[in-house]
Design a protein around this nucleic acid. Sequence first.
DNA 1: ATAGATGCAAAGGTTTTGCATAACT
DNA 2: AGTTATGCAAAACCTTTGCATCTAT
Lengths: 128, 128
Amino acid sequence: MKKTTRRMTKQRKKILEVLKATKSHPTADWIYDQVKKEIPNISLGTIYRNLNVLREMGEIIELSYGSSYSRFDANTENHYHFTCLECGLVQDVDFEVDLDMDKKVNMAIEGDVKYHRCEFFGYCKECK
Amino acid sequence: MKKTTRRMTKQRKKILEVLKATKSHPTADWIYDQVKKEIPNISLGTIYRNLNVLREMGEIIELSYGSSYSRFDANTENHYHFTCLECGLVQDVDFEVDLDMDKKVNMAIEGDVKYHRCEFFGYCKECK
DNA sequence: ATAGATGCAAAGGTTTTGCATAACT
DNA sequence: AGTTATGCAAAACCTTTGCATCTAT
């Protein structure tokens, strides 16, 4: 078991800085553009590598389903899902959708909330 | 304004059939493999085209964030997001995370729920 | 008959990776 | 010195698209 020590390079530092300074939940590409203003020759690969490292370090979170491709569902009723962090199994949660939350969020953002999705993560019956 | 009439081809029919017969929330690729058993020369492109059509028809839903690339957030505290269906803006929802839901889901799936994510969708203040 | 769908293959867009070089500690 | 990170470019991966042909209505 080898322990890897993380270095806080100027690239990594700047990426984290940019991310901490915004509330816009940016994409890797947007971060790339921002960081390039100060480190013009940084490469996109470095951005991605660092975003992954920072996530592993627990400094940032990634907003996406674990998997990189879409999943489809013929059950169009709004319902919640549970995804196993170990085996990747996705299962329906037999659980009433809380429509009240939409109203609350509506008030908070002053917009027009249509629906919401909830995804639960953890370990399934078999994997835990 | 031209109205397009959808045809129920054997490919489209089979894809929907496969999707309705499973609870596994499959990927396009998995569906491709299944359908190929009965329509061996079907192409992946047809799978994707039909999944998009079926979604537009409201027959199925797609489980993913609208955008195809990941977004990152330096706020690692669990919190909810609201995404505008019109302009794509993603904003934090200032709203308490309901930890009780984790417990309820825990009982339902008999697993070990670690956390959950909620995403609200609708139209933002500016776009509504 | 004709608009809509398919198969094939090529292209697109996002993310990862191999390799030689550079930079921390 | 030795390990970790970078830049560049190529590759990988998932999804979309152009085009000629076919098919459902």
